[in-house]
Design a protein around this nucleic acid. Structure first.
Lengths: 228, 228
DNA sequence: CGATTGCCGACTGTCGACAGCTTGAAACCC
DNA sequence: GGGTTTCAAGCTGTCGACAGTCGGCAATCG
């Protein structure tokens, strides 16, 4: 760190606020999500440490963290490789997402109230606003934030953690197809449908809504992968 | 390593086969599951490194691994602490387990066949045999192995990973209550019921069976925690 | 000309060391 | 005597270094 103090943090805005590990992890995450590192590409600890101006220790720890999040895979004595998702794995991820969100909705619908509805409706507005003009990653984040709110309202920390775990992979999936979201109208409609189902208090309607919602997202991504 | 070469591997049968990280991770896992480290206890990297005769690097990596598995929690600049589960977290874990197993059964029931049935029936026999005489950890492992098979048959790698993730916490839950499984008969009956439901091909029966099965396990553990 | 073996470079796994922070307690003040 | 300040010990975060291993390339052999 003595020679090149955290030059990699995109300028010099925030210097040494948090752990180096977290900073490196953020850097790697961004680099992977934005496809600056190609899927399957080998990452050298040494090279990264040199490029970022830090020692190998924080790089290793950050890489291990990303491995646990499914963004990297490691081979003993060979190092780390950027996760490459095939269509099968992609289906698995969306299937698990469906599993988690169905469960969250089933729990949430029993404790749904006006305040939660307002908050979720506000988040849909944010998504709609972000849909017109903002960057792709921003749209994705706001969309994920909505779903994260739904799961958080289900009031199961462990369930939320499971969602956070696959959310990194979801970002990867979405980034991989390179395209932005579907058209803003359909997104808003789809989320409103989910909200209406919740407001109705009918578990079956909630399930239909989430099945449709995630089905659309999955088909969109799988189709995108097929073309790529 | 120079002073005390891997004395902690319990003898000298297999010397230095795998990474030090994995060996340390196994050691820590065992120590936590067997309650040699008390819940909430602080673990010092330095102390562990000294005790195990290795440097701090592998200890750190192993600890991070266990953290991602939910067996340890870390506080910046303070170190690692053995995860202490309260009744609420415990409920969350079992609720997520229910979520995953329900989903797996719903998928599995559509592709269930005689071969899978035979394999699962064999595993139940192993559980029954282990139930009479073997160590508690053995019983737990065989029980978990059955459920892992069910999920593996559902043919979703990501779902299986999610189960493996919480299985470490399940081991912790079960170890925390200090007692062994419920009586062997009820275990066998409960598993057979699950198998029968699968064989019937009726999704609703599968769901009832798994809800009952996990409900019993959860109540058993929650009650155990309450007493402890 | 293809397969095998030996060598070289590069990199990971592991180690010991140092600086800065955190904590607990002694020393101090009121 | 209670509360505050200062200090020392211990520990984590980070670093640079070394050894063993892996992959690739060239020389060798059939």
């Amino acid at each position: 760190m003595s020679t090149t103090p955290s030059k990699f943090l995109g300028g010099a805005t925030v210097i040494q606020q948090r752990n180096l590990v977290e900073q490196v992890a953020d850097y790697l995450t961004q680099a992977i999500i934005s496809q600056r590192f190609a899927p399957g590409e080998r990452l050298s600890e040494m090279q990264l440490a040199r490029d970022l101006g830090v020692s190998r220790a924080p790089v290793r720890e950050a890489a291990r963290l990303l491995e646990s999040r499914g963004l990297l895979v490691s081979q003993p004595r060979r190092g780390f490789f950027v996760r490459a998702l095939d269509a099968g794995e992609l289906n698995d991820v969306f299937d698990l997402r469906l599993c988690l969100e169905r469960h969250a909705l089933a729990r949430l619908v029993t404790v749904f109230d006006a305040e939660k509805e307002r908050a979720l409706r506000r988040q849909i507005d944010i998504i709609c606003n972000a849909a017109t003009g903002d960057s792709d990653s921003r749209k994705i984040e706001e969309d994920l934030a909505f779903h994260r709110m739904v799961i958080a309202y289900a009031d199961n920390r462990r369930l939320l953690k499971a969602f956070d775990d696959i959310s990194h992979e979801l970002r990867l999936c979405i980034a991989l197809i390179g395209k932005t979201h579907a058209d803003p109208d359909s997104i808003a409609t789809s989320h409103w449908a989910l909200l209406d189902a919740l407001a109705s208090g009918d578990p079956a309607r909630c399930r239909e809504a989430i099945d449709y919602h995630i089905g659309v997202a999955r088909d969109y991504v799988v189709k995108g992968i097929g073309e790529a």
